[in-house]
């Protein structure tokens, strides 16, 4: 019963193997849990969720074309507003990095206040190339944060989004340590882990994430991964796609086009 409803995955990889071999201890747990009343009217009849929405029919992903990003920071700003992210410069669900690759071989990266208020002028001499890169939770299909959460307070939904349960998180911060992308932080007020939700509350209403909504250059593209035609499928077809830190096998669902090798 534990593995039911996980998003379908391609061949039999390590996770599948684990998932298939886990039922032994999990059945024991399930036995312990047997006899629990199954009906839970409150969660079922939530008015805010359109009855038509079926999580298992969706599989969301984001595309980012770095060659379109102008570093205006509107996405980071919108994200903070939409999700009540603390305004201090230590908490970001998404942020912009500026890369300046110099002729002396050094690469200078910066993200003052996540890029929300723009970037200071850069010294124009001695630049080989320079560009902006938006960052956010990669919504990994093989998420290390979910793996390490001791209590099941962070998880992958059926529509492929990694979420955090604010009511259940114990605040151990192991997930923050396990995230290779620095996408998580501890909320200073709730004392629970936080990160990008792909604006899950917008998705189920048929809206796109706030950062995608306000990106003026369409550097961010959002959609269903397996739709026959959508801006995202077009994006995936027309670009050479890379993900961040592929050697860690996290299988990100944030896909980058025109990504420079300096980006980590």
């Amino acid at each position: 019963m534990e593995s039911a409803g996980e998003p379908e995955a391609g061949g039999l990889d390590r996770r599948d193997f684990l998932r298939k071999s886990l039922p032994v201890p999990l059945t024991l747990l399930a036995l312990l849990r047997a006899g629990e009343p199954e009906a839970e009217k409150k969660a079922e009849g939530d008015a805010s969720k359109p009855p038509a929405y079926k999580a298992s029919e969706h599989n969301y992903a984001m595309g980012i074309d770095t060659s379109r990003c102008i570093g205006c920071g509107r996405c980071a700003e919108a994200c903070k507003a939409e999700n009540d992210v603390p305004r201090e410069p230590f908490y970001f669900r998404t942020w912009i990095e500026r890369y300046v690759v110099q002729t002396n071989g050094e690469t200078v990266v910066s993200s003052p206040n996540g890029g929300i208020a723009g970037f200071p002028p850069v010294n124009e001499t001695g630049i080989v190339r320079t560009f902006f890169v938006p960052k956010l939770c990669n919504q990994c299909a093989n998420p290390p944060c979910v793996q390490v959460c001791p209590v099941g307070a962070t998880f992958t939904t059926q529509d492929g989004v990694v979420l955090v349960d604010q009511e259940y998180c114990i605040g151990c911060r192991y997930c923050i340590q396990a995230c290779p992308y620095g996408a998580r932080f501890l909320h200073p007020v709730t004392h629970t882990a936080e990160k990008c939700t792909f604006c899950y509350h917008r998705l189920i209403k048929g809206l796109v994430p706030a950062c995608v909504e306000v990106c003026p250059t369409q550097a961010r593209i959002f959609g269903e991964l397996k739709a026959r035609s959508s801006p995202l499928t077009r994006f995936m077809r027309l670009h050479e796609i890379q993900v961040l830190k592929p050697h860690l096998n996290t299988e990100p669902r944030v896909y980058y086009a025109n990504l420079d090798g300096e980006v980590r």
């Binding site: 410069p89 230590f90 908490y91 970001f92 200078v108 993200s111 206040n113 923050i176 998580r184 932080f185």
Partner: peptide, 10 residues
């Protein structure tokens, strides 16, 4: 450069 969320040491 460090990721902005890394300012706080956990």
């Amino acid at each position: 450069y460090i990721y902005p969320n890394e300012i706080e040491l956990q």
